[in-house]
Structures are given as structure tokens and as C-alpha cells.
Write a protein that binds this DNA or RNA. Sequence first.
DNA 1: GAGTGGTCTAGACCACACC
DNA 2: GTGTGGTCTAGACCACTCC
Lengths: 252, 252
Amino acid sequence: MANHGTGRLPKYRQIAAELRDAIQAGVYGPGDRLPGENELMAEHGVARMTARQALGVLQSEGVVEARKGAGVFVRSFRPVRRRGVQRLAEDVWGAGRSVWSADVESRDLVVDGVRVTEEAAPGPVAGVLGLEETETVCVRRRRFVLDGKTVMLSSSYLPAALVAGTAITTPDSGPGGTYARLAELGCKPVHFREEIRCRMPSAEEAERLQLSPGTPVIDICRTAFAESGRAVEVNEMTLDSASYALEYDFGA
Amino acid sequence: MANHGTGRLPKYRQIAAELRDAIQAGVYGPGDRLPGENELMAEHGVARMTARQALGVLQSEGVVEARKGAGVFVRSFRPVRRRGVQRLAEDVWGAGRSVWSADVESRDLVVDGVRVTEEAAPGPVAGVLGLEETETVCVRRRRFVLDGKTVMLSSSYLPAALVAGTAITTPDSGPGGTYARLAELGCKPVHFREEIRCRMPSAEEAERLQLSPGTPVIDICRTAFAESGRAVEVNEMTLDSASYALEYDFGA
DNA sequence: GAGTGGTCTAGACCACACC
DNA sequence: GTGTGGTCTAGACCACTCC
């Protein structure tokens, strides 16, 4: 019968809208448990799949989160502020501090799973770095964990020929990080470009970033340029959008 | 029976993975039609709801798009590049050109539905603009349409007392737009801050932006500062993430 | 008219969380 | 153990698209 009676909206959308409004109105706050499938079935006189669909709508909107065996709960958001410009200022990495430390002041951040490899450059990266087909790149893959949750995956690509024999090719790139090492090589990054996209994650990414359904990811692709105009690094990052707010400051 | 036999993944995820891989491998290109529910039922020997769930996974990943009565199709992406820094350079709006025109070179862009109102300032906006409870703001709401598709909704807030009697309070803000008018008022914007978030849209937003399921939105909140350090405008934008790639350039 | 996806029902078994 | 959400079946009627 699909759509008779009350209104033009399908039942499951009506139920979803009702719950969404209740959350908006503060009836259910962050962390609160919503009426479950059985309760919705009884209250609205619908079949289980219909109640389930309603909750599915809110889930794919990122409003609620289902926990198996426990219930459906209102999600809360505490994004970290990531300053795109100040965090890459030379006085940050020039002073021997980690670039990342400029982001998070007092929360428990861990960088783990650093893996450094030498590989053939992916097509687009090779193009930006100006590499020939035969040239390889040094890839530094990292995982960033904040308060126990994975919030970002990062892959940094540098011309292998340029960074050979430096600390860049080791997991610990030393004080000031990769950019300080590049400066010592006479390739000090002086200009950056960040390109931002937003999309839904693949199933694999959702697992790696521990994302609950309805959470998009942010792709940031940063290119670092030396004084000569040469691109010396390409860094591809994938961020949990529920964990981040990006900020860029600039003049007119 | 839920989960026996082949593997540990639920059937609908297996089917989804299979289709996803086929798309990745190019078996189905952008715009191509995927096997429908009936076909999946027959090929995999599953019930309709299971085949449906599989397609639902790909839909919520933004990979495919269902068209009622027609089929399920692979989506294609042609994002517009939005340069965050250059587009707000003074020589753009100072020369009497529209800020927006810096974004899109040769595609059919329309700004429509401009509505200008005077309202009480929303709490966060009032705080940034440094307004008292009793002070109102001039709100300029706009809709941006590219190649026939709505790609952005924008609400610009300015102190009503500051802009009273200027073209800012009319739908057509004149050559160079709002910023040129602010300059004439002695409040030339010299510094900008853009804050970016990403999330799934509400049902209402999805409709207004004509988003297919699985498409996140990008929120950009831009604050314009005058020489004095005073915030003179707050612009809240909501973008279709499938239509945009953001770009920011800056020095070390 | 035939085929498609959209909505909905009424059952079922399972794994997991909490008590 | 009881209740929760996760998966799955086997039907049904509808609105829509395309021929």
C-alpha cells in the first residue's frame, strides 16, 4: 500500500523526521539512546523493516549511531581544529617542532604505524613531482590517532633520488621532520597548495578509520614547493570528517 | 541463517564488493547501468531485499545512483575548482568583477534566488561580528546554479547598522559586490578566515541541493576582517561535495 | 505493457551487550 | 537470559521509465 493516509511522505521518512526533530529540539541529547526498533514498531504500528529503515535514514545522515546489542544513540561531535596556514609556517617546523603538534594542544595524539618504502610513483603524483616513468618515490605512510581513535591516514611522496641517504627514508625523520630535512638538502619548502575534496569512504577506508555509517571523509592533497618552484613533496591525507574542522587564513 | 558458507562477509556486502570491484576495474564506466535487483537475485540466488541492500551499500558510498523505473547507474564526477585565496584577492573584487567569476571559467553559472532580509543575528554569528543582543544583521541569501544544477547555498551576514542605505541591502550589490561596497564604507576587507567542515546533509538540504544519496556537503564559514581587526562579514556556505574541489595556496 | 526501483509486511535465526 | 540490532527470506502493491 506504500503511501496512503497521513501524508505524502513514506512512513519511514515520517518516523525519521519525527526523531530528527526530537533530537534537534534537545529531547535526545548526544549519547542518549533513541527508541529502538521494537518500540518504533509498537508506537507507529509498522513492520520491523519499516522502523529499521527510519533509523537507517538517521544513521546515513550521521545523526545517530547503532551499537549492536545495545541500541541506537545520538552521536556527538568534537572536531579538532586544523590550521592550514599557521601549522606550516617556517617558525613551527624551523624550531624543531612537529608540524602536527601545532594542531592539537592538550589531547592525546599518537602517530603510529609509520612505514617508509620506495615505490614506483602513482601517475598523478609523478606528474606533479615532475618524475620520469622509471624514477621512484620515497613513501612515508602514517596513521594519526587522537584519544584512541584513528583520525587520519597520510601518505607522503618524495622523489627517491632527492632524499636518498637522509633521515627522511627512516621512520623517525628527526627534529623538525621531513621539511627540516628538505631544507638541509637545499630544497626548503616555501609554498604550499592544499586541495580538498569530500566523499563517502569505501568499506575498507571506513574500517581503517573506524568510521560509523554516515561519516564522510575529507581528502587533502598537499603539494610543497621549493624556492625554485619545484614540487618536492606530495602528501595525500584522508581525514575522518567527524574529527576535523579545517581552517585557512589569508589576506585580500 | 545470516552468515554461513562462502565467507565471513554478509551476502549483501559480498555482492556490493563484487560490483564495486567491477566498477573500479572499468567493467562499468560512468553512466553505465548496473545489474538490477532482479538480475542480482537470479545470479546470486538471494531474496530481493538482499540484492537491494547490496545496491544500497554502493549508493550510500556515492558510487552509484538509482533512477526510479530505469535502473542503477555509475555516477561520474566533474568537480569545479574553487581557489580559496586568489578568488578573494583585492584585484579581483577591487576591479569591479564578481568574486564568484574567479571560480568558473567556461561553464554556465547562474546566481539566482537572491533574497536580502534584516534579521536578528544567530548566536554564533553575533558573537563573531561583535554585536549586542538587540542589534540586527543584513542577510543576503543566494543560490548558485552550475550547468543547471544547484551547487551551493550561501548566507552572508553583515551588521545592519553598518550597511544600512547601501547597495548591500539590495539584491544587486553593484560592481565588485559586497566587498567593494564595504571598502567604500571604510571597512575594506583585508583578511579572511575560512573554516571547513564536512557532513551528510539533512533530508531538506539534500532536496534543495538536488543531492543523490551518498553525497556529503561541505560547510564553509568565511569571516572577513577589516584593517581594524573588526569582523565585517560572516558568510556561511553549503556546497555539494560532488561539484567542488577546494584549493588553498599559501607560503611557509 | 513490461521492467525497474520504492515502499511495506510478517515472519525467521544470529551475534552481541548488558544484567 | 533477555533484549538489542544485523542479516535474510518470500511474498505484495505502487510509481515511474522506456518502449
